[in-house]
Structure formats: structure tokens, C-alpha cells
Design a protein around this nucleic acid. Structure first.
Length: 304
DNA sequence: GCGTCCAGGTCTACC
DNA sequence: GGTAGACCTGGACGC
């Protein structure tokens, strides 16, 4: 096994724990967390098709990344690791305007203080989209099981114990019956298969949504055309694309909003939307952070 | 042990 | 455009 150490510089307003634990993505394979070492383990597939197991932790104004691979990494492989880790940890996102806009309000000053707002994402938009569909209409435990099953049954093996997230081609080559029986995706199986086949054939290229010149409303509309992607999934996909104009409401945040603002009484979605309208392009991010504030005040729920 | 409910929703048919 | 019912799974809960 070859080992390569990389130091990846982070922005001034970056915080490792806030990014790692800001939502549940760190618990979805092929991510895993070593809570005692405060490190993220991530198995990634490079453009050269090499598999690299990365252990990422906080350094001094940097991410300390140990990359393990079967064969040595070439200079272009090292650049690819740097690019993928930076993308997952949202190092290129400029949250300065957001932090400055909320710092003037006492209730939200903690967001800038905690350098919160970077939501961990996967190496590809396709991977995030598959995972997002797996969060719909089920418990978080089932989501983690479905994603783990996808990796274990269709992902490439690194060392016999760890498997990467499967490519669109690998999922496309499976079948609905397989995705139901082995992945336990249930009725989502047909959605995942159709999505994977669209991406594999080139009919759909989710990476295009990273282009900031495309209006968010257009990306949202394209997401909503995908079977299995409704308001919740589309809204939260946009957050992973760095677009925060949609709230992405689900039963958990609705209940949380009711607890925080209405003594537990449920309110209409339009009431929630009205409450956050004044935060403009940042409303989706501010909403999510307000709903999860207790995680930052006490303990992140994903820490063992 | 068994039945029911519901969880980080979405789709389709129908009105 | 709004709504009812169906849809996989698995854990929690009541009996």
C-alpha cells in the first residue's frame, strides 16, 4: 500500500467539525467518520480509475489528507485528490457574504462565529442525487442501509473490505429486481435505475448544474423532472450545489420548526417560507442552520 | 408474535 | 391546482 500526504489550504471562515457534521452526509458510505480522531475517511475514484482511501482531518488552516492507494499516485492523481477533497468540503464556496449578512442579527451571529454553512457533499452530483433519493420517505437508518448496500453490491473493492460508490454505469447495468432485493430500495429501485441509465447514456449530465450561470430555478425545474425527485429532494440538492433559494422541507424540519416557533403546533409550508423570505438567496441555508442550531450548542447527532 | 404506524416523500389518477 | 391513495422498508410501539 502506498501512502501520500497532502496539505490542502482552507479558507479563513472554514471549520472542520461544522462542515463534517453539518448534515448527515458524513454517515453515508463510502464516507465514514472516526469521531475520536475527528477525521473523515473517504474512498474515492480518480479520473485515472485508481481507488484512493483518504483520511482527512483538520490541520493548521488546512485539511491534512493521507491518501492510500495500491499503486503510487501520479502528479495528476495528486491534483485530482486535491480537487475532489476540496469539492467535498466546499473549500471553493464563498460564504463571506452570508456570514456578514447574518452577523448583524444577534440571533444568527453564532453562524459566523461557528463558521457554519458548508454542507459536506459527494465527489459527484450524481452520487449526491442517488443518496438524496435514498433519503425520501424512510428513516435515516434505512437511508444509510440503502447507500451502504449500493456500495457493497455494485461498488469497486479497494482492499476487500471497503467499496467505492458505484458508477452510473454499474447501477445502470443492474436491474430493478436487484435494486429491490439487494439494495432494499423498494419502490425507489425504478427511480434509481432510470436515473443511472439516463446519466450513463449521456441523456442527463448532472455535473452541468455546477455551472453558476444557469439560474437556480432552471436547475430546480430539471431536478423536478427526474422521477423520485420532488420538492424536498430538489430543494436539498440545490443546497449541495451551493444554491440556497429553496427550503427543501421534510417531516423532520417541519416538526423542528413547529417546536422552535409554534410550541410544537404544525404550520403550513407557506408560513415557513414567508418567515425566511427576507434572507433572499441565503434563506435555505439559514433555515437549515437555524433548525440544527442545537447540534452546534450541544452535540452533533452523528458523533458516536 | 402480530398488527399498526410512520419516517429527513413522490407519483399518479381524479376532480 | 389540489387531494387521496399507493408505494418499499424496518424500527418502535401497543396489545
Amino acid at each position: 500500500m502506498k501512502q501520500t500526504a497532502l496539505t490542502i489550504r482552507t479558507p479563513e471562515d472554514f471549520d472542520f467539525a461544522s462542515t463534517l457534521y453539518g448534515h448527515g452526509w458524513c454517515t453515508l458510505a463510502p464516507f465514514s467518520v472516526d469521531a475520536s480522531a475527528l477525521a473523515l475517511e473517504q474512498l474515492i475514484v480518480l479520473p485515472s480509475r485508481k481507488l484512493v482511501l483518504c483520511t482527512i482531518s483538520a490541520g493548521s488552516e488546512s485539511l491534512r489528507t493521507i491518501a492510500r492507494s495500491i499503486t503510487p499516485l501520479s502528479p495528476s492523481d495528486r491534483i485530482a485528490v486535491h480537487r475532489i477533497v476540496s469539492r467535498c468540503f466546499r473549500l471553493g464556496d464563498d460564504l463571506g457574504p452570508f456570514h456578514r449578512s447574518v452577523a448583524s442579527e444577534p440571533a444568527y451571529r453564532w453562524i459566523a462565529d461557528r463558521r457554519a454553512g458548508r454542507l459536506l457533499r459527494s465527489p459527484t452530483v450524481f452520487e449526491d442525487l442517488v443518496k438524496m433519493i435514498c433519503t425520501t420517505n424512510c428513516s435515516w437508518a434505512l437511508t444509510t442501509a440503502m447507500v451502504r448496500n449500493l456500495c457493497n453490491s455494485l461498488g469497486r473493492s479497494f482492499d476487500g473490505t471497503r467499496r467505492a460508490f458505484p458508477s452510473a454505469r454499474a447501477i445502470a447495468a443492474s436491474s430493478e429486481a436487484f435494486l429491490r432485493a439487494r439494495v432494499k430500495a423498494g419502490y425507489r429501485a425504478s427511480y434509481l435505475l432510470e436515473l443511472a441509465r439516463s446519466v450513463d447514456s449521456g441523456r442527463l449530465d448532472p455535473e452541468l448544474w455546477m455551472d453558476r450561470s444557469i439560474p437556480s430555478s432552471d436547475v430546480y425545474a430539471q431536478l423536478r423532472m427526474i422521477k423520485g425527485v420532488g420538492d424536498y429532494a430538489a430543494g436539498n440538492m440545490l443546497k449541495l450545489l451551493g444554491r440556497y433559494e429553496y427550503l427543501g422541507l421534510d417531516s423532520w424540519v417541519r416538526a423542528q420548526y413547529a417546536r422552535l416557533h409554534h410550541g410544537g403546533r404544525r404550520v403550513k409550508d407557506s408560513t415557513i417560507a414567508k418567515q425566511y423570505r427576507r434572507f433572499g438567496q441565503w434563506r435555505g441555508l439559514l433555515f437549515w442552520l437555524e433548525m440544527t442550531r442545537q447540534w452546534y450548542d450541544s452535540k452533533f447527532p452523528f458523533v458516536e
